[in-house]
């Protein structure tokens, strides 16, 4: 009888590989962000507006002026503010004598996050239920899937006012709009996943005279889990987008969508503040994605065959 050591070795190897992978991934993200910053400022250096430093530091007067060789409107300070201008915008008050913009945006992000999370939950449940129904009733799948697809071709910005104004449900209507974007990836991913079980495993369950419910709970759903989590990760970011867009036609000003709408109006005088809001919105999407990713790892790791990475 073989000993347990091969699998133990494999587990150790996987752990080591994961450690290296994590370090590399972090490094990759840092390098990518640096490259982005260099490209951003590089564009401004080459084609932005002229700038000068006129200051004194430790008794030495610094007077430097840079005049970029080219002039491209896209790289102007109005369209592409300097990174330090954006950073400074976070610290400055959003309104006269108000709290700093960062605080305002983080609070708004918290509000939007709740809308997105509720929308995500509704969408995930709806998406999963639809997929389970479709897997069992072929007729419904054939007749309804085209409408599910069509629902996603309608621009959300056109649907949002109907739900917001029609329901008058405040933040909950925003959550519903987020769920409108969320359920689709889950339906498609789960539908694929629920069919992913090896046909012989279905026959095996048949040989036990297992009912539909057992086949679903003991075989189809567990086999679909990796597919469902992939769909949930797509949905997580989509629900943030849905929540922000949902806020636009509503009179809700407490979320990121409201903040973006507001800062849009002052773009001509303070573009850096809109960029600050964009960064916070992106961070919110990444945060939501990361949460789902962590849950996925917690649920799947050790229970499913580890993925084989290409050599």
């Amino acid at each position: 009888m073989a000993s347990a050591s091969p699998s133990a070795e494999r587990t150790a190897a996987v752990a080591a590989r994961d450690g290296i992978g994590r370090g590399r991934r972090t490094l990759g993200v840092v390098v990518l962000l640096l490259l982005l910053a260099v490209a951003w400022e590089g564009a401004k250096w080459l084609a932005g507006d002229p700038w000068r430093i006129h200051a004194g530091l430790a008794g030495i007067a610094i007077d430097y002026e840079h005049v970029p060789p080219f002039q491209i409107r896209l790289a102007s300070d109005l369209n592409l503010p300097h990174l330090w201008t954006i950073a400074a915008a976070f610290a400055e008050p959003a309104q006269r004598n108000g709290p700093p913009l960062l605080g305002v945006l983080v609070q708004a992000a918290g509000f939007t996050f709740l809308e997105a999370a509720v929308g995500f939950a509704i969408g995930a449940v709806l998406g999963l239920v639809l997929a389970i129904v479709f897997v069992h009733v072929r007729l419904l799948e054939r007749s309804l899937v085209p409408y599910v697809v069509a629902s996603q071709t309608v621009p959300i910005i056109a649907v949002a006012p109907v739900i917001v104004v029609g329901l008058k449900a405040g933040w909950f209507s925003v959550a519903l709009i987020a769920s409108y974007l969320t359920f689709f990836p889950v339906t498609m991913g789960a539908l694929r996943g629920l069919r992913a079980a090896d046909p012989r495993t279905i026959e095996l369950m048949r040989s036990y005279a297992a009912g539909t419910r057992d086949v679903l709970l003991k075989l189809r759903l567990p086999a679909a889990a990796p597919y469902i989590f992939t769909a949930l990760k797509v949905s997580a970011t989509a629900s943030v987008v849905g929540a922000i867009i949902g806020e636009l036609p509503s009179s809700i000003r407490s979320g990121l969508g409201g903040a973006i709408l507001n800062l849009n109006q002052y773009y001509a005088t303070g573009p850096a503040r809109l960029w600050a809001a964009i960064l916070v919105a992106a961070a919110l999407g990444i945060l939501f994605f990361t949460i789902v990713w962590l849950v996925e790892r917690w649920v799947l790791t050790g229970r499913y065959r580890p993925e084989v990475e290409p050599a």
Partner: peptide, 25 residues
């Protein structure tokens, strides 16, 4: 009792719980 050419065990269950599967049903 069926045995196929491939073991077709359930990845997400331990060996023991794979054996328990028909009894669970």
């Amino acid at each position: 009792g069926m045995v196929f050419q491939a073991p077709v065990l359930f990845d997400w269950r331990t060996v023991e719980r794979n054996v328990e599967l028909p009894l669970e049903v």
